[in-house]
Amino acid sequence: MATTFFRILKFGLQNFSRNGLLSATTTVIMVLAILVFNGLTIFGVISNSAVASLQDKIDISVYFKSAAPEDDIVKLEHALQSLSEVRAVEYISSEKALAIFKQNHDSDDTISQALAELQTNPLLASLNIKAKDPNMYPTIAGYLETDQLKPIIEKVTYGENKEAIDRLARIIDTVRVAGVGITIFLALVAVLVTFNTIRLAIYSNREELGVMRLVGASNKFINGPYVVAGVIYGLLAALAGIIVSTPLIVFISPYVHAFIPDLSLSAYLGSHVPQFVFYQLFFGVALGATSAAVAVRRYLKI
């Protein structure tokens, strides 16, 4: 059993090293496939961050009548927090609202002066609600439109921002679906190109497969070495992929950071080294081995 395994391993290494040019081309194609895979992963990270930072900008604000008792507002805040659709609720009292307003306009003398002349605080207390998913805003808005709450609520900004929020929700959904679609499509292309390259490499050896059969080799002796060679292509391609992508990611990181301030690709890479290495090795080895196993079966008739 062990002898068989080591012989298959040995034949696989010979397959790889003695078909130099073929092995090199196949590995290069797999490196390209792995770079596509990396590109897609990074595209995923970027689009997720972009979506997340957009989502963060969407919210509903509920403004309360100045007579509304603070107890009722806090009660509503707790009720909202317990809703499964709600991600966060922030209570902004009228004093806090004024403080924020002052801070935002402290360079504008006219406004500062006007404020100083006011005896009472003209700003209303509000609850700022963020949903887990943009699609959930209508549900949350619906929850706020009950008769019970009417007496204390001055206005819900969802009605006014509805169109903008809905459009943003649709865009985000489209970006997600398109991202997944593009990823699946390109990954499929990369897989097919790799598979075809390995298939061609094996096709050029198809007579050998028959010869091995005639000499009494069982299937594992015929398949095995090609699968081993496929694993070697995958390992080498993954290593090359890591060596090429790492500096590229570090290079584009500042440009991406300029667009999405919440995202630093370099830092992301730094905190995901094991995943980054593992996924590429896994992708490369799985792709190489399965392609070889599937391809060699086609030529194993006799």
């Binding site: 068989t4 012989r7 091995m212 000499v215 080799a217 069982s218 002796f221």
Partner: peptide, 11 residues
Amino acid sequence: AFALEVEGRAQ
């Protein structure tokens, strides 16, 4: 040697 190797003969 291949003909013997596939039979599982000892090295």
